[in-house]
C-alpha cells in the first residue's frame, strides 16, 4: 500500500475558556473542541468531513493547518512528524498544505488587488522566482480558475461571491501544494454557483493530483466530492467510511439520523426524518461515556459509563457499542 500523504493520529484540540470558573483566579477551563480524531489521506483522494455546527470540523482542519495548536496527538506529512512549535516545520507544512475559506469575500484582503493577492504566496514561498515568472504563474493560475486578465487590477469587493472563491482557490493553489483544506468553501454560495466551484475543485484536483479535505455541513455536496466521509459529533469521530457505504448503509445511529434529515428534492420521496430528542452536552464538561448518548435513540446503560472505541464493522469504522447488531 502506498504511503499516505497525511496521517492524523488521535488529534485533540482544547481552548482555554473563562466560562464556568468559580473565581477570576481559578484555573482556566478547557473547551474540548476536538477529542481524538485519526485518519489517513492518500494522494489524489478526497476526505469529506461532515457534522453539525460546533462539532469541531473547522477546528480539525485549522489544527492540521497549524492555525490552532493541537493539544495532543500527531500529524504526519509524507511520513514525517510535524512539530507545530517549530516555525520551520510549520512553514514547510504550509508549502504543501493550503486552505480555502468559508466566506469568499472576507477571505481576501479588501485593500489588495487580486493580482497582489494571488502573487503573495509566491513572494512568501518561492523566493527563487523573479518578477516575470512570478507574474506569469499568477496569470496562468487565475486564468485556470476562470478570472479574465483584464480584471487583475480590481479589488475583491467588485467580484461576486463565486468569483471571490475562485480567487481564493487560485491563491491557495498557486504554490502547487499537495493537499488543499476546504473549510465550507461553498456553503456561502448559491446552488448554481456552488456547482461551478465544486466542479472547478474537482478538475483542479485531477490536474494537479491534489488531495482534498473537504469540510461542509451539506451532506449532498460532501457525498458528491468525497471518496471517504468522516462524521464528527462534539469533536469525536462517529463513523468513517467510503462515501457510498456511508450513504447506503450507515452504521452509527448519529449518521442514520443525519442522513434521514437531509431534505430530498423530490416530492414523491416521503422523508421519514428521525427526530433527535435531548440536548447537546457542553464541550466544557463532556460525558465520560459516548458523547452522543444524550440524544441517541439506541442508548443503554453502557453508553453512559464507557466510551465506545472505533471498530471496523463491514467497511466502516464506527464508534458505537451497538453498531455490530
Amino acid at each position: 500500500m502506498t504511503q499516505p500523504v497525511l496521517e492524523v493520529d488521535n488529534l485533540h484540540v482544547a481552548f482555554p475558556s473563562r466560562q464556568g470558573r468559580k473565581y477570576p483566579w481559578s484555573p482556566m477551563n478547557a473547551v474540548r473542541a476536538l477529542n481524538g480524531v485519526s485518519f489517513d489521506l492518500t494522494k489524489g483522494q478526497t476526505l469529506g468531513i461532515v457534522g453539525e455546527s460546533g462539532c469541531g470540523k473547522s477546528t480539525l482542519i485549522r489544527a492540521i493547518a497549524g492555525l490552532n495548536k493541537p493539544t495532543q496527538g500527531s500529524v504526519k506529512l509524507n511520513g514525517a512528524d510535524v512539530d507545530y512549535d517549530n516555525r520551520r516545520d510549520v512553514l514547510n507544512l504550509r508549502k504543501s498544505i493550503q486552505m480555502i475559506f468559508q466566506d469568499p469575500v472576507a477571505s481576501l484582503n479588501p485593500r489588495m488587488t487580486i493580482r497582489d493577492i494571488v502573487a503573495e504566496p509566491l513572494t512568501a514561498f518561492r523566493t527563487d522566482l523573479n518578477n516575470t515568472t512570478r507574474l506569469e504563474k499568477v496569470r496562468n493560475m487565475l486564468d485556470r480558475v476562470g478570472i479574465a486578465e483584464r480584471n487583475f487590477n480590481r479589488y475583491p469587493h467588485e467580484f461576486s461571491g463565486g468569483q471571490c472563491q475562485r480567487i481564493g482557490i487560485a491563491r491557495a493553489l498557486v504554490v502547487e501544494p499537495s493537499i488543499l483544506l476546504c473549510d465550507e468553501p461553498v456553503s456561502a454560495l448559491d446552488v448554481s454557483i456552488q456547482a461551478q466551484v465544486v466542479n472547478l475543485l474537482q478538475e483542479l484536483q485531477r490536474d494537479m493530483d491534489l488531495s482534498l479535505i473537504f469540510v461542509a455541513h451539506d451532506l449532498g455536496v460532501v457525498r458528491h466530492i468525497s471518496d471517504d466521509i468522516l462524521v464528527l459529533y462534539m469533536g469525536s469521530m462517529m463513523e468513517k467510511a467510503a462515501g457510498k457505504t456511508l450513504v447506503s448503509a450507515p452504521q452509527h445511529p448519529y449518521t442514520q439520523a443525519l442522513l434521514s434529515a437531509v431534505p430530498v428534492p423530490d416530492p414523491n420521496v416521503q422523508v421519514q426524518s428521525q427526530v433527535l430528542e435531548g440536548d447537546l452536552p457542553s464541550p466544557l464538561n463532556l460525558p465520560v461515556g459516548c458523547v452522543f448518548e444524550s440524544r441517541c435513540p439506541k442508548r443503554a446503560s453502557i453508553c453512559t459509563t464507557e466510551k465506545p472505541v472505533s471498530q471496523d464493522i463491514k467497511q466502516s469504522q464506527v464508534a458505537c457499542h451497538f453498531a455490530a447488531n
Partner: peptide, 24 residues
Amino acid sequence: RGLLRAVPNIHDQTGQLHAIPGSP
C-alpha cells in the same frame, strides 16, 4: 431545470455537477 440539476444528490454520485455557467 438548471437549478434542479445543480443540487447534488446524496444517493447518486455522477461525474460532474450540472453547473449553471456565469454570474447572477
